[in-house]
Amino acid sequence: MSACPAPPSARDAALAMFATLRARAGAQGVVLRAPPPEPTACCGRGCNGCVWEAYYAAVAYWQQEALDKLHKPAAA
């Protein structure tokens, strides 16, 4: 198993969150930008500053941005 901080449960949770928020956005007619792409260049050595750390930071940013858009009052 890779030493990178990308356990399947965290990856699965991120993908499920993307699907849930995109479905909510679609139902509300809100346009969200695409979620961040998964890293493809992890070396598996558990580096300080691993690409998966940056990915999960981008996931958290995307989630907050999506929630802000979903909770924004409709324009009059």
Rank of each mutant, 00 (worst) to 15 (best):
V31T: 15
L32T: 02
D12F: 10
A14P: 01
F18T: 03
Y61K: 15
A6G: 09
V59I: 04
G26D: 10
A13V: 04
G46Q: 01
C50W: 00
G26L: 02
N48P: 14
G46W: 04
C43R: 13
A60D: 09
A16Q: 08
E53Y: 09
A74M: 14
K69E: 12
L15T: 11
P73L: 07
G26K: 03
A76Y: 15
A34I: 04
C50Y: 00
Q63E: 14
C42S: 07
A75N: 12
P39W: 01
D68V: 07
L21I: 05
C42F: 00
A41C: 12
A3F: 11
A16K: 11
E65V: 08
P37R: 07
A60R: 06
V59G: 00
P73T: 07
S2N: 07
A58T: 04
A27S: 12
A76W: 15
A41D: 12
A41K: 15
A57P: 05
T20M: 14
G44F: 01
P35A: 00
Y56E: 04
R45E: 08
Y56S: 03
A41W: 10
Y55E: 00
D12N: 14
V51A: 12
C47F: 04
A25H: 04
G26M: 02
Y55F: 10
S2L: 09
L67E: 11
Y56K: 03
A3V: 06
P36M: 01
E53G: 07
P36L: 00
P36W: 00
A60C: 03
Q64M: 10
R33F: 05
G26F: 01
L67A: 09
A76Q: 15
L21M: 06
C42K: 01
C50V: 02
V59Q: 02
W62Y: 07
H71S: 15
A34H: 04
R22P: 03
P35W: 00
K72W: 11
R24Y: 11
Y61I: 14
A14V: 05
C43G: 13
A75P: 14
A27G: 08
E38M: 08
K69F: 03
A66S: 09
A66R: 00
R24K: 15
A76K: 15
A58H: 01
K72F: 11
A57E: 09
S2I: 07
A19S: 06
G46T: 04
A3Y: 14
P7C: 05
A41I: 14
G46M: 00
L15S: 11
F18C: 02
F18P: 00
W52R: 02
P39G: 05
M17F: 09
D12Y: 12
R24A: 13
C50G: 00
A27Q: 13
T40Y: 09
D12H: 10
T40R: 08
Q63T: 13
K72N: 12
A76P: 13
A10L: 09
Y55W: 02
A3L: 12
R45I: 07
Q63Y: 06
M17N: 13
N48E: 15
A10W: 05
E65R: 10
V51H: 03
V51M: 05
K72T: 15
G49M: 04
A34P: 01
L70N: 06
Y61D: 15
G26E: 05
A75M: 14
A10D: 11
S2Q: 10
K69N: 08
G29S: 04
